[in-house]
Design a protein around this nucleic acid. Structure first.
Lengths: 136, 136
DNA sequence: TTCAACTTTGTAATCGTTACAAACTTGAAT
DNA sequence: ATTCAAGTTTGTAACGATTACAAAGTTGAA
């Protein structure tokens, strides 16, 4: 379990209460939340929290490489702390996004049809395990 | 070359002038345009065209399976006529999106970790051929 | 020719996000 | 301890993409 305050200091970001809570949330709940989801989750804890702070903080973290911003599906930006390469799966029933531990080196730093590929995303959609169970 | 009016009739959509022009545009210019790009391209031709019409039409077409709406990168919705499975590549310099003719059957209609996969997207980012040439 | 159903249009509303300026907090220098 | 400048947070307003809605226009079958 990494120390959030250390992580922030390593990136030369002052560990304010808001920043610590936001990063803690992303570390502990791997739900790929949107900015609004994070705001809703933390506003009870920090009643003065502003949405602008959430957006500012997420921007800072993403620029510093602490988080990755993902536009995976359905035109919504989601944030995640874990930056190991992996495959994303979105359930069309419950809208949850799961990380799948499939490593996927295909196409990384290759040339395809003359284009240099530096990043790749594999996004899957379907019905998740628990929704399949409920459905029957 | 498919007849646009026939395509619309097959899907029980009245072939109004606006609908024909919009679908024609998507068939002829495989640029994965946004709704606004389509509006800008057609408003000279149809001066009374409304953006709402473009949005309505794209929604109708997508619901009927004539088009696919893609949230590939950077949180913008793009539309495409070709629905054969293929890989998308976005150039980070010129922002163009290329179709790559890599078939990609991996994960289709499979179960992974118990989740049923029905759709998959492979999105690549990098620098395209022509931007690479210019850069040097 | 008429009329109901469908289509298009423009305006206003909404949603997610960003801009901005004022208020607050912090920590180093005194 | 006090001060002050730099950094941080906050609320409001602005913005761009999209949707809701209602009025106006178009179409085609009776």
């Amino acid at each position: 379990m990494q120390n959030i305050i250390e992580v922030l200091k390593e990136h030369n970001i002052a560990p304010s209460m808001q920043r610590v809570k936001i990063l803690e949330y992303l570390r502990d709940y791997k739900t790929h939340p949107t900015a609004d989801m994070i705001y809703q989750a933390l506003v009870n804890d920090i009643p003065t929290l502003s949405k602008t702070t959430v957006y500012n903080t997420l921007k800072t973290f993403t620029e510093n490489g602490i988080l990755v911003a993902l536009s995976l599906f359905d035109n919504e930006v989601r944030y995640e702390y874990n930056t190991d390469p992996h495959v994303h799966f979105k359930c069309m029933k419950c809208n949850k996004i799961y990380d799948l531990n499939k490593t996927f080196d295909l196409y990384k730093n290759e040339f395809i049809d003359g284009h240099k590929v530096t990043e790749h995303y594999v996004n899957l959609k379907g019905i998740c395990k628990s929704c399949l169970k409920e459905g029957k």
